[in-house]
Design a protein around this nucleic acid. Sequence first.
DNA 1: CTTATCATGTAAGTGGTTACATGATTCC
DNA 2: GGAATCATGTAACCACTTACATGATAAG
Lengths: 182, 182
Amino acid sequence: MAQKNILQYILLGLISLQDMSGYDIKKLFNTELSDFWHANHSQIYPELRRLEATGLIEANTKIVGEKLEKHLYHITQQGLTVLHHWLKEPLNDVPPSKDEFPIKAYLISDAKNPILMDLITEEIARHKIKLIYLNNRMSTVSTTDTVNHYGHLLILRRAIHREQSYLSWLSAEKKSLEQLTK
Amino acid sequence: MAQKNILQYILLGLISLQDMSGYDIKKLFNTELSDFWHANHSQIYPELRRLEATGLIEANTKIVGEKLEKHLYHITQQGLTVLHHWLKEPLNDVPPSKDEFPIKAYLISDAKNPILMDLITEEIARHKIKLIYLNNRMSTVSTTDTVNHYGHLLILRRAIHREQSYLSWLSAEKKSLEQLTK
DNA sequence: CTTATCATGTAAGTGGTTACATGATTCC
DNA sequence: GGAATCATGTAACCACTTACATGATAAG
């Protein structure tokens, strides 16, 4: 199965939260959604046009300057129906993430290979940075109007909890590997 | 960035652990590697031929029956060089996983929408099953010759720790959502 | 007046899935 | 002899990335 064009539902969902342009959506994927989903503008714009063509969204188009068209999309009744149907559908299986850490660790196999220790050290550094970034995000989000956006806070808490817990596991593993190899 | 054909390195790495056929690799992706990486046979076989053509692996081919060729690959010196170079390279950024849970949660936004509670309940059920599966895997792996495959145990422990920690977070969030909505 | 950001579009190419296709071996 | 699994291959298609391309507006 894997992908049945999930992007279309996400676009629908974002537009349902508030009217948006393709550019607004692109910015969301680059900022507060960056840890949870991503799409490039080259994927977003054609998909929006397709959704418009099938009547799930509609655009208020205005021309700025000589020829540039700005599209502000809003969701239609039909779009809401499709969105709610998707939201209520069972979650699809999660394909393995494209994280190189576990597969590299598996391939190293020998505990005494120094590359393994390097790998764990790098992984710790990488996730410390991510946790700092997420904590910053949390502090800005808590002070904006997004306070009433429960889902947003929920997934931020989720990401922070995951990073904290992962980091503590990593340092425990690092210690036990140090014991093993010394 | 994203993908620079990571599969080639994984194939190289697996063959470096022990000589393997494409079919063996396919089976690994369907069993003990299934949580960490995946590829279909339609992707594996052509890639193996490409690696063979570039001299990173070599095949012992034998014909069984009338015409079916079985290829047992082993890694070459050149292949080992390429593999070790990749293993020592810094980890690439992890693209967001294709997990629908966080993006659905974000899109629901309103804590009182019952779909959110359903979603969390479903997520808990889904991950309980996964944890049971991982624990089973751990008990079989610990009793096989794989005991000396450190990396394998490491990523299994990682996955189990992640599931346990995620499940406890989920039930805490579920309780707090119940308080909020009643 | 230049740079950054806003704003949208398409084309080429790659990674990955799904489907089509064939044949061998083992176990019941 | 039929089913399950072993074993390999290709073609069509889809999701997604990268690159090319254009133009508008705001800030310094």
